[in-house]
């Protein structure tokens, strides 16, 4: 099985988020970056499929030079090789623009054929659009399914488990090649090892310039302004003895919040 995993590098959750001078993006200078969590789960799923059925896992990531660190982490965890789409202006491209870059990179790698499977996280932790993977499938003209927790290879293709709301799941079958967007939490993530990092140094990392992959088209959506969420404090202290407070709490959960 040839599996491509598209990975995004995002600001670390603990990083201090500040809006830049232009008010259109966050200040990147003092941020730390990490692998988008759902993408980490996509990588884990790909590695498990490879371990079970053989094949190759190729990491695909777009962004400036700093993305290399995240790519090396993926190689250290067991991916075989990587393609780095070098692009300094990723922030100004919309989901369609990014998906086009990814699609062209896949085509440049595989030509008219496509890999057996393309996995990516269902959304990014920074923008959370949840569209890139799905648009990528459309651009490559491949079937896709989203919110996947588990992938199983069958004789005819794939059987996947989707997460629905309220604890419901859906199992569907689809042929390969296909694109799946992976939900966090389906597997336990493996940890990166010293041996993995040392091996990663010798693995192939091909750099493809964004300009050579696809010409930049005007974005369909333009970011006007970003703002930090305003703080709203709605904590209520319920007075009285524990018994009275508990009764008041039940009352509120029943009739105000309606969760009971």
């Amino acid at each position: 099985m040839k599996i491509i995993v598209a990975i995004k590098q995002v600001p670390d959750r603990d990083a201090p988020v500040r809006i830049d001078a232009a008010g259109k993006w966050i200040e990147e200078s003092d941020l730390q970056f990490t692998m988008n969590e759902p993408d980490a789960y996509a990588l884990e799923e790909a590695l498990r499929l490879k371990e079970a059925h053989g094949g190759e896992v190729i990491v695909l990531s777009a962004g400036p030079e700093r993305v290399g660190a995240t790519i090396r982490e993926a190689l250290a965890k067991g991916a075989d090789r990587a393609i780095h789409i070098s692009a300094e202006d990723l922030g100004t491209r919309d989901a369609l623009g990014v998906a086009k870059l990814l699609a062209e990179a896949v085509k440049s790698e595989f030509g008219p054929e496509s890999p057996d499977l393309i996995l990516t996280g269902l959304q990014s932790e920074d923008l959370g659009l949840g569209q890139t993977g799905v648009i990528l499938a459309e651009l490559l003209n491949l079937p896709h399914a989203s919110l996947i927790l588990h992938v199983e290879k069958t004789d005819s293709g794939l059987k996947v488990k989707r997460e629905l709301e309220a604890g419901w799941f859906q199992e569907i079958e689809l042929p390969t090649p296909a694109v799946l967007t992976i939900q966090s939490g389906g597997n336990k993530l493996r940890y990166a090892t010293l041996m993995g990092i040392k091996k990663a140094k010798t693995k192939e990392m091909r750099v493809a310039a964004a300009e050579q992959l696809s010409s930049k088209t005007p974005p369909t959506a333009v970011l006007e302004k970003i703002a930090l969420p305003s703080k709203q404090r709605s904590t209520q202290i319920l007075p009285g003895t524990p018994k009275e407070a508990a009764a008041a709490l039940v009352e509120k959960l029943k009739f105000e919040v309606r969760v009971l």
Binding site: D14, M35, R190, Y191, L194
Partner: peptide
Amino acid sequence: VNTGAWENDYGSKLFNQLERGSNALGIGA
């Protein structure tokens, strides 16, 4: 651990927390 031979859910969780986050308890900075 350095070769990945140790598989332990708690251990992996701790390592991942410290790879990505800042503290062993996995709480936001």
